[in-house]
Design a protein around this nucleic acid. Sequence first.
DNA 1: CACAAGCGCCAC
DNA 2: AAACGTGGCGCTTGTG
Length: 559
Amino acid sequence: MVVAFVDDAGVTVEPQRTFTVHAFLAFVRAEEAARRDQRAPRWVWEDTASFYPLLLAADVRVQRCHDLRLCHTILRNSSLTQSSDLAAAAPGFWDAAPALEPTIRHQGTALFELQVEADPPVDTAPEFHRQLAAVAASAEPRRIRLLLAAESAGALVAAEMRFAGLPWDIARHESLLTRELGPRVPYGVRPERLEELAGTIRALLGDRTLNPDSQQDLLKALQNAGLPVTSTQQWHLKEVDHPVIEPLLHYRKLSRLLTANGWSWLDAWIVDGRFHAEYLPGGVVTGRWAARGGGALQLPKQVRGAVIADPGWTFVVADAAQLEPRILAALSADLAMARAGHDTDLYAGIVASGVVETRAHAKVAMLGAMYGATTGESGRLLPRLARAYPRALALTEAAARTGERGDIVTTRLGRSSPRPPDAWLAGQAQAYAASASGADERRARSQARDWGRFTRNFVVQGSAAEWALCWMAEIRQQLWLLDNTAPAAGLGPGIFASAPHLVFFLHDEIIVHTPIALAEQVTTLVGRAATSAGKLLFGDFPVDFPLTVATVANYADAK
DNA sequence: CACAAGCGCCAC
DNA sequence: AAACGTGGCGCTTGTG
């Protein structure tokens, strides 16, 4: 492996060196240890997800990195760097999907199974220089630089969380399954409780062969039994008065538990008592993370009782209270809205200001403003919200109009929305042609509004994702410092064996797994990190980012 | 046989 | 009450 040494401007400061894999691991370990009290090195590499697991498997953590692939995507699309050489170049290697990463399900994986370098090896220096140039020439270098740092730190966090894993109590999960579904059965066989319910449903609908898993069959059977239904969705079925509805909804609930988080899921995803979720930083266009396999970002509340801290350890579970409306208040510099959330639940503050009558109304109206609701309760309440918070609502409206025109919008730190697809542009163009029919125009208007709702939400969701990245990066750094108070901690075998560490992330919520004795310190630093994240994004604008924090041994007790 | 679309439901 | 954003995933069903 080849390591080049450059300064912040990308200028070579030492001759490059070539290492074997094992020598490289020792080198990184030594560099991180030697500079622990100074400014740590920033490792510039192609792709954290394929590279960092190698280091973690060898018990080596790094403090900082620059993920060329993730940063390239941001710079390629950002309105803040649109005149750079990087953005102008034809799509190439750095725009392609990353190579298939090595599979590391747990720390027992042997080193020789890991692919260290791309084949053929990638020359990272030219791309790094293009990126530095794009940042330097940006209209907002401070923001875009912060975004790249936060995105890269997020990639480190994602790899570390996958490596450490979320503690999972298989016995407790299995007892839940047995209690709800009956004894374990082989894959493909209906568990006892589901079979009983299927029988009840068939009898009540007079259809001996009905498969309740088939939406088509089910809809026909319901209609044949005289029920006035056009879909089999839960909310729809709940409005119908018939004896079959209760067992049917129960069947659906249990079936979901079996297929999404049943015995097969346990077998596939829980290794050594840990759920090693694979997060995909930057996996969503808005900058949110996605996840692959195991449904890490959709863990049902129903199974969270199986998330149990190790003996002598506990969880600090923290979620940002009303994150997106607070982000909107700060983005739009809407002082009235920021004040409504000062020292209180933001929705309660809106009620206290006399804008709407109940917290539920405040919430549905705010969500409607951010998602683009036009009808129902939310649509009715919007005008009152717009009177009380004109700046905030003007921002969401402007973002929607921008999208309807086919233009792009940009988050606080500089992530821009994609351009609409060609089919969308063609549809809009067609609606203006002389030959356009009324149907063409209606379709084009409808598609324009759809894209407007996307850009409307993009600004808020994407800026909230940036806040969350900064929050996590700060938590990670502070946990590292806490860890460093112990001699040589973090750099020996089992790097997360004795120190508090992040184990879960869900858009606006984190879990730290920590020795009980350190839980109070962790709680304090997580709260401070939220404040720091707010300052990084919005400077001195007076917006609060309060957390709901719980110290619990069982995730299900967090809320 | 593999794969994709449509549906439904989980999370935020 | 049910239309309003971002996703992943498992099932059935249709198609190549």
